[in-house]
Amino acid sequence: MQGEPTSGHDAATWSPLDSDGWYAARNATTALRDALVRAGLEKDFPYLRADLNAFGHGLVELGRVSPDTAERLAELLRLALSSGFRVDREDPGHTPTATNEHEERD
């Protein structure tokens, strides 16, 4: 139509593949899936998937899980925390690190 821009992206040509958020969500979903496989929980998260919200921000959809699965996941997190796994909140990327708590107490 006359007067409309002829170049650039509009809503009709936008793709999630053009979004950094999509790739971040996909990579995080893959990492979580791999950890769930190692923990034997891969079948307990049937709705796990990467997604984007309306603003193009990447999200990881965990979906609904059974109470037993939630308890197993909580136990895994408790074990990780008790073995020294932590997330440094001052790190902009929230890079997880493992620490040796015994060395820190000396």
Rank of each mutant, 00 (worst) to 15 (best):
S66C: 03
L52I: 14
P96D: 11
L52F: 15
P92Q: 11
D68L: 08
A74R: 06
T69I: 02
H57E: 13
D51T: 12
F45I: 11
T97E: 13
L73T: 07
E61T: 12
L52H: 13
P46S: 12
L81V: 04
S66F: 03
D51V: 08
A50F: 03
A50N: 07
H94P: 00
V60P: 02
L76E: 01
G63I: 09
E75I: 00
H94D: 10
E75N: 06
G63S: 11
L76G: 01
L79G: 10
T69N: 05
L76M: 00
F55S: 15
S83C: 05
F55N: 14
R72E: 01
D68M: 07
T97G: 04
P92Y: 09
L76N: 00
R64H: 08
Y47Q: 15
R72V: 00
D68G: 07
G84E: 02
T69Q: 04
D88M: 07
L62I: 03
L52K: 11
V65Y: 04
F55Q: 15
A74Q: 03
H57K: 10
T95Y: 11
S83I: 01
F55I: 06
L79I: 05
L48A: 08
A70L: 14
D88L: 09
F45A: 04
F85E: 01
L76V: 00
D51R: 10
A80E: 05
E90V: 02
R49T: 13
A70F: 12
G93F: 15
F45H: 09
F45P: 01
A54I: 10
D91F: 05
P96H: 06
V60W: 07
R89H: 08
D88C: 07
T69G: 03
N53A: 13
G56Q: 09
T69D: 00
R86I: 04
L76S: 00
T95H: 15
P96N: 08
N53C: 10
L73G: 02
R49V: 07
D91W: 07
S83F: 02
D91R: 11
P67Q: 10
D91V: 03
T97I: 12
P46A: 10
A50Q: 05
L73I: 05
H57A: 11
V87G: 04
D91G: 06
E90I: 02
G93M: 15
V60N: 08
A50H: 03
E71M: 06
R86E: 03
F45M: 08
L62S: 03
G63L: 10
T69W: 04
A80K: 01
G63R: 13
L52V: 14
R89L: 14
L52D: 13
L52N: 14
E90L: 06
G58V: 07
P67Y: 10
G84A: 04
V65N: 06
R78P: 02
A74S: 05
E71I: 02
R72F: 00
D68I: 08
L81G: 07
D88N: 14
G56T: 08
D68N: 08
H94C: 08
L48P: 01
S82H: 12
L81A: 14
F85W: 06
H57N: 13
L73A: 08
L73F: 07
